[in-house]
Every structure is written in structure tokens, then in C-alpha cells.
Design a protein around this nucleic acid. Structure first.
Lengths: 135, 135
DNA sequence: ACAAAAAAAGACAAAAGTATCTAAAAGTCC
DNA sequence: GGACTTTTAGATACTTTTGTCTTTTTTTGT
């Protein structure tokens, strides 16, 4: 088990940040992103396909092909990527795995988890790839 | 992938809270805890064995046997359980999976994760099973 | 002593997540 | 058009986690 994101999401975030950092380069081949982000290339390729479907990336085949951002990187927020790859697990589900836990019927840890999850959602929602690339 | 804790940890926390809620009952059989916490009994049994080794629970075999708390439930904190079952994953590792990420060499998400992880550690450290049982 | 009941331990099975490989489709360059 | 390059898609394999089953050990009650 990874820390907070799935491995796929970790690799994607790392890869996208690498891409975002290189302002001059527009199109990236998977092996290059994989190498620079220390991710397994075939697995990252699969993940990037999901991001294409999710509207984060564009892809083009052939000799000068590769992946590029589908919109400006200051309009791509971490939450967009996490939602596509990890779904609502982190942003919605009960930390103790109780299926009918919600605000009106909270599990014993609900109030704590809410207090922690919200700042996480806020950070992911406010932080763009452009900002991440500056660090 | 579970939300923040492993499944084993989720089941354990739920089970221990069930036990903590019943102030009159001292010794619990695994099938009873499993039933009341909606956990798979054999898996929970394994997990409870880890908690015995970790000093959270006592166990006794035989006819009147079962599991009981090794110390008062207001001295058992959630962090104790999480540390035994999930290790330092949540409390130490890099959110982006970068092996040499730390305060002096932070990954781009480091400062955010730090701000989120610390309140989580605090909550887990301050909240005892006794307090959880009251909710 | 004996039978029953419980945890302990280890083997085993299933599921999910992670990772690789191969063939196909599509685009580029000559 | 043909060789090459890249993503796409699907199959496959590996690993970890989750879950079950069986046997053994220990204790209790009769």
C-alpha cells in the first residue's frame, strides 16, 4: 500500500511534474517521462492513457508523437489527476471502511478524518501543475 | 486500496472500539468481535495476534479464553494500533514515493503533505480507545 | 482423565494492484 | 509506398494484500 495515492497516481504525478518543469519541450515520449520520473514505462503508459481519456493529456502517435498537456498547466490541478486515477477513495470514503458512514451517521473517527481530509482536498484543489513545477 | 489505513487496521480499529464500548465485558472471542464489527473473523484473528505481540491485547486460550486489553483503554491510543499494523507508511514516507525525500530535500508535494500528515498524527496520538468508544 | 472451546500457527486460496510483453493501429519521414 | 516510431489495446505475469482452512496447543469444565 502506498502512502496516500496509488502507485499509478504517484507515477503520474511525478511524470507530469517532470513534463511541467520543461517549459520548452511540448511533446514527451513515455520512455523519456518514465526515465526522468523513475517510473516503470509500460505502467506509466497505461496510466497516461487514462489521463488522455480524462482530458488532462493529449496523445499523438507516430514519429514525432507522444503526450502533451491538453490545457495550460496552470489550469491542471492535482485534484483532477487524483480524481481520475484514485476516484473518490481519498476525498469521500470512510476512513474505517464503514459503508454507511456520513455526516449524519458518523463513525467514531469521522470528525477527525473530516478535519484532515478537507485540508488535503483544499491543497490538491489549489495546487496546479505549474505551481508544483516551480518547486 | 483502502482510504488511509490498511484493511487489517480498519478491522482492528473497528473491533477494538466495539470491545471498548462494552465496559462490562472483559474477554472477547474473535467470532463475537468479528460479528459486531463486520469483519472477517479469521483475518481479524491474525490481526489480533499482531496486537498481542505489540502489547495492546492479552490473549488466553481454552474454554473461557479470548482477547482482552493489555492496559486501560484510556492509555491505548490510535497511533499505537496504526504503528503496529501499518508501520511508518502514513507517518513518515513520501507521498509521491520518492525514496530520498525529506525536509532538507523535499519533493514538490512535501510541504503540503507535511501540513496534512501532522494533524493526522496528532489526532491519532491524542485519541484513545476510551474516547473513541464514547462516540 | 476427557471432552470441548479457544487462540496459535502455518498452509493455502482469492483478489487486487502492479508490472511486463506483444501485436495492432496510426502517424511521420524518406 | 515503405520503414520506422509511437500510442493503443489486450493478454499475461508477478506481488502484495486480503481472506479462508486445517491442525496444533493450551485451557477449562465436567
Amino acid at each position: 500500500m502506498a502512502v496516500v495515492f496509488s502507485r499509478a497516481c504517484e507515477y503520474a504525478l511525478r511524470g507530469l511534474i517532470v513534463m511541467a518543469k520543461a517549459k520548452d519541450r511540448e511533446v514527451w515520449r513515455v520512455p523519456d517521462v518514465a526515465e526522468e520520473s523513475n517510473s516503470p514505462a509500460p505502467f506509466l503508459a497505461k496510466t497516461f492513457q487514462q489521463l488522455v481519456k480524462g482530458g488532462i493529456l493529449n496523445s499523438s502517435k507516430g514519429r514525432r508523437g507522444g503526450f502533451s498537456f491538453a490545457r495550460p498547466i496552470d489550469e491542471i490541478f492535482l485534484i483532477d489527476i487524483v480524481n481520475i486515477l484514485d476516484g473518490q477513495r481519498l476525498t469521500y470514503d470512510c476512513a474505517l471502511g464503514m459503508p454507511d458512514c456520513h455526516d449524519e451517521n458518523p463513525c467514531p473517527f469521522h470528525v477527525h478524518w473530516r478535519r484532515i481530509r478537507q485540508p488535503l482536498i483544499d491543497a490538491l484543489s489549489e495546487e496546479s501543475l505549474a505551481q508544483m513545477a516551480k518547486k
